[in-house]
Write a protein that binds this DNA or RNA. Sequence first.
DNA 1: CTCGTGGCCTTACGCCGTAAGTCTGGCGGC
DNA 2: GCCGCCAGACTTACGGCGTAAGGCCACGAG
Lengths: 227, 227
Amino acid sequence: MRPTGPLTRDDIVTTAMGLADRHGLAKLSMRSLARELGVEAMSLYHHVAHKEALLDGMVDHVFSEFHAPRPGHAWADEMRRRAVTARESLLRHPWAIGLMDSRTSPGEATLRHHDAVIGCLRAAGFSVELAAHAFALLDAHVYGHALQEVALPFEPGDDIAPIAEAMLASMPTDTLPHLAEMAREHIYRPGYTFGAEMTWGLELLLAGLADRLADRLADESDDLGGS
Amino acid sequence: MRPTGPLTRDDIVTTAMGLADRHGLAKLSMRSLARELGVEAMSLYHHVAHKEALLDGMVDHVFSEFHAPRPGHAWADEMRRRAVTARESLLRHPWAIGLMDSRTSPGEATLRHHDAVIGCLRAAGFSVELAAHAFALLDAHVYGHALQEVALPFEPGDDIAPIAEAMLASMPTDTLPHLAEMAREHIYRPGYTFGAEMTWGLELLLAGLADRLADRLADESDDLGGS
DNA sequence: CTCGTGGCCTTACGCCGTAAGTCTGGCGGC
DNA sequence: GCCGCCAGACTTACGGCGTAAGGCCACGAG
């Protein structure tokens, strides 16, 4: 199935990602992966120590797809672009979010990406502490949003009308009045996309962070002026 | 192993949660669960359709542990308390976050909880749309934060000094300068707890939402006054 | 020509989820 | 008191899983 040449670790990881994208993580086994590569299962173990290491590699590869913020550019724009590309990647590879919580040792691409994020914030005047807050906050927003979006019962391209119908029918209006109201009047209306929630929240976050940053810079110049 | 009486679905779910808490989700199999319950594996299938349904039940049970916001109480306090209890639950059951993204049909307790959150916001004057924004934003924060925290290489109780040492040693200062700086000067300092990041971000979120709510209420009274 | 050696394959083991079928103890109806 | 039912438990069996252990073979260096 594979063009030619000796197997490389990179072949293995990217093929595994494709398999997981198309058929779901549950269907990704060392055997199915080997079959896809035209190779026997045990051959894979010459390139990855065990399946966990393969999964580590897959997650690390996903991180490498995020836009790496550049120091010196407008920090909010860079963070926005990072969030948007991260969301796209995480939706393209819906298995990634679920893997993250079991991977305690980040890969090389992951670390490089994190370094870029922090570097951009520091260059924009964030203190170490404020950068840490911003970093954790923005990450939580992106991951948390992706987690919700991946778990939605409908795909972005779907016609939501029939699903909405079924959902509303199974939702008892008397015991879940507010959920039913929100579904009927907002979420299951044509034009609603969950992705818009992310950008709405992202703008709130960025505005809040800009405030905190301005406070800090003002304090700093006060200190300088008062000395 | 189990006191007595016929097996119930609830016994099964709570025992499975305990097993996953103590030994990790990977060690939870229908066989190990049955052994814990003093029963044969196949007997479980009289109470749950398949393992996926068991996992659904476990996740639903986790949601039932979150504080359900009460309409009529101060919305920010309720949301704060919900976030804090949710974090505690998700850390107590570290497998839950990883399961969420593969569960597309929420359980009964989950729906009831969501209804309570929205109900509290609506009672506080949030429009349907603003409540949807707030809901998605707060959820993303809690889940995203828990996802990060569960994946940390150290436990809350750990002495982080030796881990910090190893981490910093393996982190090349020249290629990851900002990450190394943050680790050295902030994260691996005694007294740092990642949980504090959550409350910092939560306050930023709540302040931003309060602003948006005030804008909306001001608009509303303008409309009334101008008519 | 020899001899590692790197890259792949073969075999085998003990787990897994679960389909299908069997046994049994207690209970409602007579 | 007896019978028949059947929910709830047990037994067996199948195909697939991750991977330990070892074998085979082409090729490049000496």
